[in-house]
Nucleic acid binder design. Sequence first.
RNA 1: GGGGGUGUGGCGCAAUUGGUUAGCGUACCAGACUGUCGAUCUGGUGGUUGCGGGUUCGAGUCCCGUCACCCUCGCCA
Length: 603
Amino acid sequence: MSSAASWRTHVCGQPRLENQGEEARVCGWVQSRRDHGGITFVDLRDRTGLLQLVGDEDTPQECLKALEGLRSEDVVQAIGALRLRDAENANPDLPTGEVELHVRELEVLSRSETPPFEIDDRIEAPEELRMKHRYLDLRRPRMREYVESRSQANQILRGVLHDANFTEVETPILTRSTPEGARDYLVPSRLRGGEFYALPQSPQVFKQLCMVGGLDRYFQIARCMRDEDLRADRQPEFTQLDMEMSFVEEEEVQAVVEEVVVSLLESFRQKAPPSPFPRMTWQEAMDRFASDKPDMRNPLEIVDLASVGSGLGFKVYDDVLAAGGLVRGLLLPNGGSLSRKEIDSLESCAKDAGAGGAAWCKVTEDGATGPLARFLEGEPGQKFIEALEAEAGDLVVTVADQSRKALAALDAVRRMAGELLDLIGEDSEILWVTDFPLFEKSSDGSWTPSHHPFTAPAASDIPHLLDGKLGEVRSRAYDLVLDGVELGSGSIRIHDSELQGAIFETLGISPNEAASRFGHLLTAFQYGAPPHGGFAIGLDRLYALLFGAASIRDVIAFPKTSSGSCPLTGAPSPVDAQQVEDLGLAVLEALPDENLPSSSSPN
RNA sequence: GGGGGUGUGGCGCAAUUGGUUAGCGUACCAGACUGUCGAUCUGGUGGUUGCGGGUUCGAGUCCCGUCACCCUCGCCA
């Protein structure tokens, strides 16, 4: 039989016309069996493809019987001769379709139960079941491609960064909890009962410490964990390409990011955008698109209607403007063709986004129709239409509300209208959004960092830190946006401990508090910190886009459900009482028995 | 935490107004078949309709609760 050194002479996807006549040993999983009585075909699969095995009257009786006894997903080794298939028997759909292995010897290496779902891209299986038997799901060609593509993509970005003199550094998984930001996953310490490690939400502090450590250029494909509720594009643990550079300005960080992104786009999509990517300030993005991550494939732009809207005698506009809110709108070219139902859906999506509603009108040859029309009859109405540059056949949708809600609604309406009118361009559009506000007002009225507290303010805005106009302080943060999706964000950091202290003070973090939370970073900054900045790209989301995967779960080898559970391992699970006790902990409520993990049987 | 959707043999689906023994395809099992490649033909096994309660002469169907998954709002510096 086989020795380990010679299990295979060929892989399944390998044999071609020119291999005819060769002796071959192949190993793989049984994809399917077609038994014609006297002649039997078996498709053998490995990660490289399918090869047809055949047994006929020239095959030893025992071996033919063994072929007939094979079932889906059995693992076998087959030995025989590669032979040509007649023209009429060749399979043009298979790369190996011109040949087949005429089997002489067959060894079943491992039998398989009937799989819970068919190993076939064409068969839809419930995602939970696929996760429970992920090892089977990974045998499906599409899933296998995602895993392989991900490996390749990682290799590509490592190559780019190594060539740019970056050093790959592994930072701790067990680290210190930081109270602000997302909720931490905690790990109790046994040796110091009552104390906890936290799993990193990102390697932020460590990468900055790498800069203080003189590494100059750091990167890591880093796992990050955040204990928050999930979404379709969010997992409790996710992967970032994390990087940081010393002695750089924004443009230098962005240039490296662009090189990484262009390399990936070139490898996995036909077209990559020319570098440098376009830039847009946050203010411009909000004014023109009501979004800090605008989809530039959508040509619709927001129009400010405050001045022309105030003279219409429309109480909703007047009240909102008097209260300091926004009156803005969108012109939908040929939007008059939309059905009443579609217009209603635009209105309700504005409401869902938090605005009071959306006032609209259709523009016709003889004036306007629709709810807004009766305010547009006189001279001011004419100006209103002119401001929008509306023409007959167009639809005008306006939103009036307090700023935050109005912008959210305009963003939602713009996106939906782009879909409804089929305006979304074919080609991907990537851009940098820059000059974010350093702070944003949280619901309780306090100021919080819009990025993180280590983001440097724009030098020219530092005076505003002192004069209290915090909303006007711009940061040196930048986001990379692809087709309305935020791929990642970064910033130039504060490297001056005095300035850092001032920011903490502004955020209401006392020196004591700052010292206890970030003392390690602040102390490090007292020993000579280089100016530095960096970036982080969310790889799961990027790879899902790049590979055309339906879900980020498809580009993660072993993903979790939207409640953070793992159907494969049964995590999270109760643990032995002794384990809990060793940690100096007590569980408050005993969990019911059915929550115990089920034993993982192969059935 | 809130809202929405889904849950019926292993898988995909059906079942009229609440009414017969819950049906079809596929997979699976057995048999037949010498060129198939999503083989074909014949026959067969397989169901506590997610779980618990209720209404009713009668519940897959209606009501209440609950669980799981998916989507979404809050949340995610």
